[in-house]
Amino acid sequence: MVRTLAASALLLGVAAPAAQAQASVLGGDAAACTGGAGPAVLATIIGLKDRSGELKLELYPANEQDFLRDDRDLIREGKVFRRVRAPAPASGAVQMCVRVPHPGRYALLFTHNRDGRNKFSIWSDGAGFASNARLGRSRPHVQQATIDVPAGIMQVNIRAQYLHGLSGFGPMND
């Protein structure tokens, strides 16, 4: 009887939302968020310009000297750096997960690599941070990207921002 009810629920789609929610978490660290293992950051990305290219979530040390430094240098020096990538999904909510080595303070960067090259292009690509402060025209500062990650799963919303002429980077609806 229980097996029949479970099968009926699956056929009717009752269990589908939970499966879809887990399946929608992108990146190589998705299991850290969907399995509740942590510590990890589950970022919900909003405001994508389109669904082209690749999405990246990067974790840096939370200090101005190391923020946005070349990953090879950070890794060689034994500093925190983690990157997860995923193709932009054709539709639906966008959630990405990145594992962190231990609870603590980090800097988190989201980028939307729209042109398919592995180098950030200010002309076409997008970026965002957990603070969701307007990026403008200058290089971002670490305080815009700093987050405090607990032992579990930290959830953040990141609004993607793209170049808007002379005013610099901002959300698409500005």
Rank of each mutant, 00 (worst) to 15 (best):
V2D: 15
R3S: 14
A6V: 15
L11I: 13
G13N: 02
V14R: 05
A19N: 00
Q22M: 09
Q22E: 11
S24T: 07
L26Q: 08
G28M: 03
G28H: 01
A30E: 06
T34P: 04
T34V: 12
T34A: 08
G38K: 04
P39W: 05
P39Y: 08
A40S: 12
V41S: 03
L42V: 04
A43G: 01
A43V: 02
I45W: 02
I46K: 12
G47R: 01
D50W: 03
G53L: 10
G53T: 04
E54S: 12
L55D: 01
L55R: 00
L57E: 00
E58N: 07
Y60G: 02
P61R: 05
A62C: 06
A62E: 06
E64Q: 15
Q65M: 10
Q65A: 14
D66N: 14
D66S: 12
D66T: 08
F67C: 10
F67S: 08
F67P: 02
R69M: 14
D70P: 06
D70K: 13
R72C: 07
D73V: 13
L74R: 01
R76W: 10
R76M: 12
E77R: 11
K79E: 09
V80C: 05
F81D: 01
R82S: 07
V84K: 00
R85C: 08
A86F: 04
A86G: 03
P89V: 02
P89M: 04
A90V: 03
A90P: 01
A90W: 01
A93K: 10
V94R: 00
M96L: 13
M96Q: 03
C97R: 00
V100D: 03
P101H: 03
R105H: 08
Y106V: 08
A107E: 04
L108M: 02
L109V: 07
H112W: 03
N113C: 03
R114Q: 05
R117F: 10
N118R: 13
K119I: 12
S124L: 14
D125N: 09
A127I: 04
A127V: 10
G128V: 07
N132G: 11
A133R: 13
R137C: 12
R139S: 14
H141Q: 15
Q143T: 15
A145P: 00
T146F: 00
I147Y: 01
V149W: 05
N157E: 14
N157G: 10
I158E: 06
R159K: 09
R159S: 06
A160N: 00
Q161F: 01
Q161N: 03
L163M: 12
L163A: 13
H164Q: 15
H164G: 09
G165K: 13
S167L: 11
S167H: 10
S167F: 10
P171V: 10
P171Q: 08
M172Y: 03
M172E: 09
N173A: 12
D174K: 01
